[in-house]
Nucleic acid binder design. Sequence first.
DNA 1: CTAATGAGAATGAACGTTCACTCTGATATC
DNA 2: GATATCAGAGTGAACGTTCATTCTCATTAG
Lengths: 210, 210
Amino acid sequence: MRHDAATQRQSDRRTDILDAAERCFARSGFHRASMQDICGEAGMSPGNLYRYFPSKEALIAGICERNRADAVASFAMVDSAPDFFTGLAGLARHHLVDRTEAEVGLCAEIMAESRRNPEVAKLYLGIENDIRDRIAAMLKLAADRGEIRNDVDLDAAASVLMALGDGMSWRRSVDPEFQPETALPLILKMVHCLLAKSDDCAAPATETSQ
Amino acid sequence: MRHDAATQRQSDRRTDILDAAERCFARSGFHRASMQDICGEAGMSPGNLYRYFPSKEALIAGICERNRADAVASFAMVDSAPDFFTGLAGLARHHLVDRTEAEVGLCAEIMAESRRNPEVAKLYLGIENDIRDRIAAMLKLAADRGEIRNDVDLDAAASVLMALGDGMSWRRSVDPEFQPETALPLILKMVHCLLAKSDDCAAPATETSQ
DNA sequence: CTAATGAGAATGAACGTTCACTCTGATATC
DNA sequence: GATATCAGAGTGAACGTTCATTCTCATTAG
């Protein structure tokens, strides 16, 4: 089809623009990054950029959606983990340590923007609910398998895990002195204590530290 | 002295303005609240407001400082608590449940702003370090008293506690469905597991829930 | 030729801030 | 006691800037 080439080209252009916008947004935040900045970064004039995205809001929404896709993808590793706590540790490491400064910053930007912008809020809560569901499913599966205790409110636990992750991620983006590597083992131990069967509650105290 | 009356009056006016600004900021955020809004809320013309504060930045900084004072004050209750875990529970309840929507929102606004505004960042990190130090002191005291185990990195634990608090607070401000009351007992239990001496690790499992 | 692609100047609204001015009440002068 | 003088609280229209968005016109591809 002749269409394909043009459509593909359009899609590529959109991706280029989103890439440029992402760089600008991570650097300066949604508000301080002007369309002129983004145009400069994308090597494109404003008039032309507006042929691909109808507004700055649309750019922000586009960035959020890409972020959503990435976040959901990061759950793939969980399915291939041998047991619940190993999967959780991998997820935590990916979320808290492996992500670049820019990724963490962009994520914080989205969180902050969701407080102001209803459009972004809807997208953001969509992501969050999606992730919570996945975590809850993880917990459910682990409970069925007998890997964790079964007298805990799983939905509440999922919320707590998310709040924990958000808090750490946020702190990392705000406090340059914060060291995720130091905190991670403590967190894992804490969660282990909360969820593990009482038998092996005190077992793995400092296996990851030092 | 004749000065006193005038000085007092000036100070009162500044407080009035900060109150108005706080209401506007909590409602619309730092960026979306215009100086006109604040002037309206304060019942005052722009020209006059600028006689008391040199810029919008100065208003924001003023709000942050007041917030700092409040946060520090909330640690008073800890000193009067019978033991560590009781004090921590009170602190957590105050921080996560008792605070109004507006207070939580304003706090989130400050956190977000600190990512953009170096002035606010300095103030915010000042607050945070102050609080971390207090938490670390709490932990140290509890460790000395033998209330908690002594093989934990106390500074790291303080960071984790703060991240936990921030994460919960943030979530409350962003997700209307989030219920702090449900999550609180889980969190307390988790922290108890992390810090309590292994003997009574599994002891208070669901004492607060149900 | 015409339709898509692109550039970049122009537009208009929003906003923080300023400025020239008024109003009020106290103090000093006669 | 009445009047002139003055400080400073308060006003609100206007200014300059920033920024998202649009308009006009050139270039290129089919």
